[in-house]
Design a binder for these strands. Structure first.
Length: 543
RNA sequence: GCCCCCGUAGCUCAACUGGAUAGAGCACCGGCCUUCUAAGCCGGGGGUUGCUGGUUCGAGUCCAGCCGGGGGCACCA
């Protein structure tokens, strides 16, 4: 029916030609803000009226009459409201049939049917292996993981990747800091501090006598192990590939050598003041960038050139990098690099996570890695648990800074909305258990045939919410916005709870109604579980 | 100085890329467990969407300029 309506509206739009100027403000068919505005609403008449030189309300009337003819019994009635909105009220029968469709889709409900789907790489976390992960990385991890799950469910072929910055001077400095502690000395200036440095010093054999670079390498290997363990404990799905920066520098010629040679061939580099520069301004950067310092050392950017050249060569249709806010100044630069290498900058998505601010007793606290004072991912998990932590970090847009008050988070963790959603899930299972295995598994086999009795408003509302899921999910995925899934899941849980309050399931007025309601429970449970799974939050059977 | 993000209820955040009376969760006040899970339900108070203009049928959303917060502007990683 929606297809029919949408098609009709598009046809109407075409008839009204010319196509909308400026491409702004298209015709929509959407859920109106209030139930008494109907089940669906369209602004078509408002937009078409000027071109048809008729009043919006008049156009809406004509459109409504036409739809009524096309949709027949599915449409109960229509109303023209406000300046010219056309509000559609659907018949119960249509909603029952639609619910049958939801059930028939099973666990795949809402999944994208992309065939074969884009090859998408999502690179995320990529925290430096010179220290434990803090809450900022936790946010990045939760976000990247959820985004990857969403893309997978949409039908894309997703690969998850972690880039390990194990080259450059920082590893040496890292090693020096550890060696100093192993020798009972103070860490060097600008060195690393914190209890974990002492731990590493104790765990690495010969840390006191070995070359700092070797100590650093050994420590990086240990840290990567720790990071993997922390991420797994945080519910992050396994990465498909761990890309090591150091590998880009290995071999003769190395990948870095080859990437820079390629840029040179394309004429995008030049020498100045003894350094090799990338003419990134050609591709929209603010200024040109150094690739090889006059000392002969590569810059960090040189590694990224090689890394993204390698990504390009691996044949992905789309590259997604999830970065922390402290890297946002890097966006133009890397886009320029990608364009210089011959890639389409639109295929490279650089998503910036805003910062997580720690708050203690109402004031912002500094998280200093140097001083060894930070709340780690592990701390967060042990304080409030994986589910509450992931929900807290994912329920907000990645584009907004979040304040994290650990004391508050701890004291309020019992009030976290995530438990409300989980509770609804557990409650549904409890109802289904009461209904019995047979009834539950038979649900939806012929929901259209049952009960001509009018649907309760809570039933109608819940069915409509379930029908919204594919649209909500597609929108959330397209906008890289997992927080929309969280918002939807909470609303759906509220919708189910209202239904549960108003409508007796086991022991309903008739067996037909009971069957229909069991079906509604099954569909609700699956959809809630799907949302939670996309967010990496558990869907418990009992609470 | 230049670039990017943000400013919405006491607090934390939404608002389907321009739609109808700006919504949730916490917190606060009052009520509800003989009935499928009370981690729940019902009711209530709470707003000039930072400010000023502009664009139009219509602006939290788009444009300009201010104010405030954060981040970034290396031959560091």
């Amino acid at each position: 029916m929606l297809q029919a309506a949408a098609t009709l509206l598009r046809v109407a739009e075409g008839d009204a030609a010319p196509p909308p100027a400026g491409g702004r403000g298209g015709i929509t068919l959407e859920r109106p803000p209030r139930a008494d505005f109907g089940d669906y609403s369209t602004n078509a008449a408002l937009l078409l009226a000027p071109r048809l030189s008729a009043s919006p309300r008049e156009v809406a009337e004509r459109l409504g009459a036409q739809l009524a003819g096309d949709l027949g019994a599915s449409l109960q009635r229509f109303e023209v409201a406000g300046p010219g909105f056309l509000n559609l009220f659907l018949a119960d029968g249509w909603l029952r049939t639609a619910l049958g469709g939801v059930l028939a889709a099973g666990d795949a409900y809402g999944a994208g049917g992309r065939e074969p789907g884009e090859r998408v790489m999502v690179e995320f976390v990529s925290a430096n292996p010179t220290g434990p992960m803090h809450v900022g990385h936790a946010r990045n991890a939760a976000y990247g993981d959820a985004l990857a799950r969403m893309l997978e469910f949409a039908g894309e072929r997703v690969e998850r990747e972690y880039y390990v910055n194990d080259a450059g001077s920082q590893v040496r400095t890292f090693g020096e800091s550890i060696r100093a502690l192993a020798r009972g000395e103070r860490a060097p200036e600008n060195g690393y501090q914190g209890d974990y440095i002492a731990d590493l010093a104790a765990r690495i054999a010969d840390a006191a006598t070995s070359d700092p670079a070797d100590v650093g390498r050994a420590a990086v290997a240990m840290m990567v192990g720790e990071i993997q363990r922390s991420l797994t404990a945080f519910g992050v799905k396994e990465f498909d590939y761990w890309a090591y920066e150091s590998a880009l520098h290995e071999g003769q010629p190395s990948l870095v050598d080859r990437a820079l040679a390629r840029l040179a061939e394309l004429g995008h580099t030049y020498m100045q003041d003894g350094a090799l520069w990338l003419r990134s301004t050609t591709f929209g950067d603010d200024k040109d960038r150094v690739l090889v310092r006059s000392s002969g050392e590569f810059t960090y950017l040189a590694s990224d050139v090689a890394y993204h050249e390698e990504k390009r060569e691996r044949g992905f249709d789309r590259l997604v990098d999830v970065w922390g806010a402290d890297h946002h100044g890097y966006v133009l630069r890397l886009k320029a690099v990608y364009a210089a290498l011959g890639g389409d900058p639109d295929d490279l998505e650089l998503l910036i996570m805003q910062l997580v601010h720690l708050v203690r007793s109402g004031e912002r606290a500094q998280m200093s890695k140097r001083a060894g004072e930070f709340v780690t991912l592990d701390d967060l998990v042990s304080e409030i648990g994986v589910d509450a932590a992931r929900w807290y970090l994912l329920a907000r847009s990645h584009d907004t800074t979040v304040d994290l008050d650990l004391d508050l988070a701890r004291s309020q963790s019992a009030e976290n909305p995530v438990y409300y959603v989980q509770y609804a899930h557990a409650r549904i299972l409890s109802v289904l258990a009461k209904a019995g295995e047979d009834r539950a598994s038979a649900a939806g086999e012929d929901p259209a045939g049952v009960a001509d009795q009018e649907l309760h408003p809570s039933e109608r509302a819940l069915i409509k919410q379930l029908l919204d899921f594919p649209v909500e999910l597609a929108s959330a995925t397209a906008r890289r916005a997992p927080h929309r899934i969280a918002a939807y899941a909470l609303e759906l849980a509220q919708g189910f709870t209202a239904f549960y309050r108003d409508c007796r399931v086991v022991g309903a007025e008739s067996e037909a109604i009971e069957s229909q309601r069991i079906a509604l429970c099954v569909a609700s449970r699956r959809t809630i579980a799907r949302c939670l799974d996309l967010l990496g939050v558990s869907a418990p059977e009992h609470m």
